[in-house]
Design a protein around this nucleic acid. Structure first.
Length: 351
DNA sequence: GTCAATGATTGATG
DNA sequence: CATCAATCATTGAC
């Protein structure tokens, strides 16, 4: 209340990438043509160079455009893009993202097209202007002596100007790509609800391992496969679930009843049902009896209801499971305890 | 538009 | 590095 707990991260300021326009280019060219020859001469190569050494910057831009797959027109820019797309997704590329990625690729391709057509225009303009100026100088040579050196100087001055413009183009392109990337690829806060199948699988695991809802890496992979999500999504889900369940168990009672009943039925009726129940590895330390049964924590109060709703039909350890100490003050359960296994449904029944 | 649910991110911790 | 806790940001129901 006193102070906002977290300063809102810089708002995603809707920056509009400034794309070089043809009119922009024309203006630049006009600016050049407006210059008297003397002025143009003054801005000779070295003049430009020590004004702002473009080498390093230009190289950076070039590298970046190359990396982004903007350079090398249609020459299989795919590789670069795909590789980059991969890096933007921590822990693998979920099928889910492919939509955004194709969107991204489409837009990137647009940018690439614009970039190349602009570049082409610049180059052509540069060539034309150069010939124009040389012609002019040749005309002048009829009136006065024009040294080849003077021509050379002029030409390089023009090229210098045009490469400065090109640099702007590259810069703008880089900016555009970055913006696009942060919008589409980094999809950080993009959220899509999991499929029913996924939540089902996750909830089943969660409630059947309520005494130790910490799936091992293997279990996470299995869950991820079954729910068609990524392992990190599974981890996120369990992280959220544990906390939210702990915070407000009352709210989850119904859900718990459903899923615990489900798994109980599954396991009691068929033992190992036709499915691959045994494929889901028990939690990292699960099978070896992870939990010292608590002396009835607060979990008991809410879960008592469960117990009455769900009379243990032989797999009656549901409720004791649910009192697992992970809800308590000492969360990290991974430290295997010597205590006997209260009996997770999976391990006890499927064994 | 409001609001709860929920997936993702972040910073702290061991 | 996995997890917790707080928070953000989107979704979907109303």
């Amino acid at each position: 209340m006193a102070a906002p707990p977290r300063p809102t991260p810089s708002p995603p300021a809707p920056r509009r990438p400034r794309r070089p326009d043809t009119s922009d280019v024309l203006q630049q060219i006009m600016a050049i043509t407006d210059q008297s020859l003397d002025e143009a001469q003054a801005v000779s190569i070295h003049g430009i160079q020590d004004e702002d050494p473009p080498d390093a910057q230009l190289m950076r831009l070039d590298n970046m455009l190359l990396a982004e797959g903007v350079c090398r027109p249609e020459k299989r820019g795919r590789r670069g893009v795909v590789a980059m797309a991969g890096t933007a997704t921590p822990g693998g590329c979920p099928n889910d993202n492919s939509i955004e990625h194709s969107d991204y690729r489409a837009k990137l391709s647009q940018i690439r097209q614009i970039y190349h057509s602009e570049l082409e225009k610049y180059e052509q303009a540069c060539r034309e202007f150069t010939t124009h100026v040389t012609n002019l100088l040749q005309e002048q040579s009829k009136m006065r002596p024009v040294s080849p050196k003077e021509i050379e100087c002029m030409v390089s001055a023009i090229h210098g100007k045009f490469s400065a413009i090109q640099m702007q183009l590259k810069q703008s392109t880089c900016e555009a790509v970055m913006t696009l990337r942060s919008r589409l690829l980094d999809a950080r806060r993009k959220r899509r609800n999991f499929s029913k199948q996924a939540t089902e699988v996750l909830n089943e695991y969660f409630y059947s391992h309520l005494n130790n809802p910490y799936p091992s890496e293997e279990a996470k992979e299995e869950l991820a496969r079954k729910g068609s999500i990524t392992v990190s999504q599974v981890s996120n889900w369990f992280g959220n679930k544990r906390i939210r369940y702990k915070k407000n168990m009352g709210k989850f009672q119904e859900e718990a009843t459903i899923y615990m009943g489900k798994t109980a039925v599954d396991t009691t009726e068929v033992g190992v049902p036709g499915n691959h129940a045994s494929c889901l590895p028990t939690p990292s330390s699960g099978s070896s009896g992870p939990f010292p049964l608590p002396s009835a924590g607060d979990a008991f109060l809410t879960l008592r209801t469960l117990a009455s709703l769900q009379p243990p039909p032989g797999g009656g350890c549901l409720q004791s499971q649910a009192q697992g100490s992970w809800q308590g003050a000492t969360p990290p359960p991974a430290a295997a305890s010597p205590a006997g296994d209260p009996g997770s449904i999976n391990s006890s029944m499927s064994n």
